[in-house]
Design a protein around this nucleic acid. Structure first.
Lengths: 239, 239, 239, 239
DNA sequence: CATGAATGAGCCTTCATTCAT
DNA sequence: GATGAATGAAGGCTCATTCAT
């Protein structure tokens, strides 16, 4: 298996370069030099070019991998959560994962011509998955019927930027949750053509967002358990 | 008075360069070359460097002027609008004006070390003005009491990105309005992830965001008056 | 006249770079590096690129100037010499001037696509002038009537190479003169096929070159054996 | 016999690489990359370097093989043709075979320092063989006595370039034959400076180039005697 | 011994900055 | 002051060569 072994070695290098590039792009923006990436990855400049013939292709590969993971997340949420939870859960996950990754914006919304088609495919996969989740949630009455997948993409991008811009990460997250709530159905005609009908019951831990079982009677629970309750108390008394 | 005449000429040149740079940065991103700016401004490369010794300084000057204008807008809203309207109006104006200007994000939130202190001062002025507006609004009960000025800054940045990322500008604007509504007071606990919160009734001019008096019956008004109705019509027919 | 003075300075630089490039191309072939040209010209790398935005453009400029001078020579000979002398004089001058400048070959004969049209124009000018001289000489009976301008171009290129290849320049020149005499009119049949060539019989494996035994009958073998046949097939199917 | 088998395999690989390199050098010039050669040869880059430690050595090997084949051709012509036929036949064969192979020029005439002495030896062998043929032909009166072997080498190189430069291969060949005829003996002074003089009447045996006595009347003789007439007939009937 | 991935020096080119005019 | 040519330090990319598998 000599050939296989060598290929494994090469693939590991590719992996290292990709990961290093992703980190540096996230940290320092898209203007990082290839030499720096190569240096940090511990390989020569030529190795980077062997795996990614041009810088643009490297950028695309990084983005593609990210979008790929987002699409996987969408599939995960679709499989394991109730319609309403799925969209919100996915959006939150995407926002968290994408915070600070500005070029991701371009890729999820605008369609620049990328040298290879791989990325475009991933984006389509993600948008389609998101669209399905959105449809399910709307049919379940968990989200306004006038929301479109483009709205969600732009919202995602904006929220990711918000999170990255905020000095306090946890406040940012809670703010994003508050904003996302705007998408839940209401009777008010904000998006002009919206016709809201039903209102479904869901509840999440105020601290960590875990879904809570809703009891038909009694005071609604705010936390998923003592851990989160205590954590919230600590923050209140600290503030 | 040759000296004075020359100084006037020089100042005009500075203005032209600044304005051209602002336009090109907005259009083509922060990687525009100085030669292009000089060429578009109709001056030589040396002139640009006389007024702005380095590219970073030019970038800072462009940002500073933008933030300056935002601060002025804040003052305007403070002077001429009710507390509640002022914050929302200002936020919308800032978002509209900043859409697509990504480096503005950095400046409003993170404090990168800029070569000259001018920009930092402008940012402080803006934040202070925004803070005052926020306080007024909160005292007037028009905005949640747990919102801080940092939240608003990050929100601004995120919304600006959202608007820039959305393919449909008017949908984006309406989406942003919907999100901003989340900040209005509710009976729900602070930053609660609020499945079971009810939204109260609000309505705003879809053109300028001014709050509208809600009549209990009849077709809801969409505009605050003929001026905005006409403006919206003009945009529709132009599109 | 400040502007004029500066432009004069710049033009001098351009001239220096062009001349240096011409010399180095002639001396060391077309693979000289731009840095070396810049260094020898006593300017920075950027200056070379200001005047000649790409290496190809620089090469073209060098060639164009050369061809330009050849065309001028053609005009000179046409104006000041008898028809017969003019062609031969021009050919000799062109050969002398072009000796050792191999890329000139490409330009006078083959039409590669050059980035700028300037060069193509010069070549056409030269060929037209040469064609006119040729016609005149033929009408005057000073040159064989079956010679075409393409023959002269190729001859020029070959003779220039000959001169450059010969160790003794003056012998080379006299040899070229002798050869040129072949073009003068004779009674012998046109372009007589005057020397016998005999081809010998051999065959080799088209893959590895091993000599093959030639069977007097049957379809000739192309490979020395199954190994090479298979290898060739693999390459063909690999595309 | 593993060692023997391996050695045979290795030698075949060497042959393949050499042949591929020769082809690519001829097709695409001397700037072909080694990777391309390796790829086309169906071997790895390392294999190329095992057989030819540097690119220059590979180039030299290609040239050496070519010159080797030219020397063999010289021997063949010496063995099987009359003195006059031999030189002209060889020159034509060399020219045909070398057309378009510019680096061959350098090798036949100028002595660049090649890393290995192999090539120099081949060149010497070729020049010696050519020299012998030249002497024979001169003694047979088939070629001007003032021609030296250096002249022939340079002429070869020039003619090869001419052929490569001409757009019409068959015209080029005939032109070259015409030029070669200049080397046949005449009564005119050696290497006459001939631009402005008239040519005198000469006639040569079409087969071996011997000068013929020109009768003022009657049909001009084509052959120097029965031998050459018969030889020409044989060739005509064989073709 | 073959393979092909890794290396890194060097190429062409760009562009912020300097400086002579 | 204004101009725009000159500068030269990187940046992206290539490719001959080396080396681990």
């Amino acid at each position: 298996m000599t050939a296989t072994a060598e290929r494994a070695d090469s693939r590991r290098n590719r992996e290292i370069v990709l990961r290093t590039a992703a980190r540096l792009f996230a940290e320092d923006g898209p203007d990082v030099t290839l030499s720096r990436i190569a240096q940090r990855a511990g390989v020569g400049a030529g190795t980077v070019h062997r795996h990614f013939p041009s810088k643009e292709i490297l950028v695309e590969a990084v983005l593609a991998e990210h979008v790929e993971s987002l699409a996987a997340a969408a599939d995960r949420w679709a499989a394991h959560a109730a319609p309403g939870d799925a969209v919100y859960g996915l959006l939150l996950e995407v926002i968290e994962k994408s915070a600070g990754r500005q070029p991701l914006c371009d890729v999820l919304t605008a369609d620049r011509g990328w040298p290879r088609t791989h990325l475009a495919g991933s984006v389509v996969r993600f948008r389609d998955a998101l669209d399905r989740l959105l449809g399910n949630a709307q049919r379940a009455g968990a989200i306004r019927s006038d929301v479109q997948v483009d709205d969600l993409c732009a919202l995602t991008v904006g929220a990711a930027t918000l999170v990255a811009a905020h000095r306090n990460r946890s406040r940012a997250t809670r703010l994003v949750r508050l904003l996302l709530d705007s998408l839940r159905v209401t009777e008010s005609p904000v998006f002009r053509d919206s016709v809201s009908t039903r209102r479904h019951e869901t509840a999440h831990c105020v601290e960590c967002g875990t879904r809570l079982h809703v009891h038909p009677t009694g005071r609604p629970a705010r936390y998923c358990g003592p851990t989160c309750r205590q954590r919230a108390r600590r923050r209140r008394t600290a503030g």
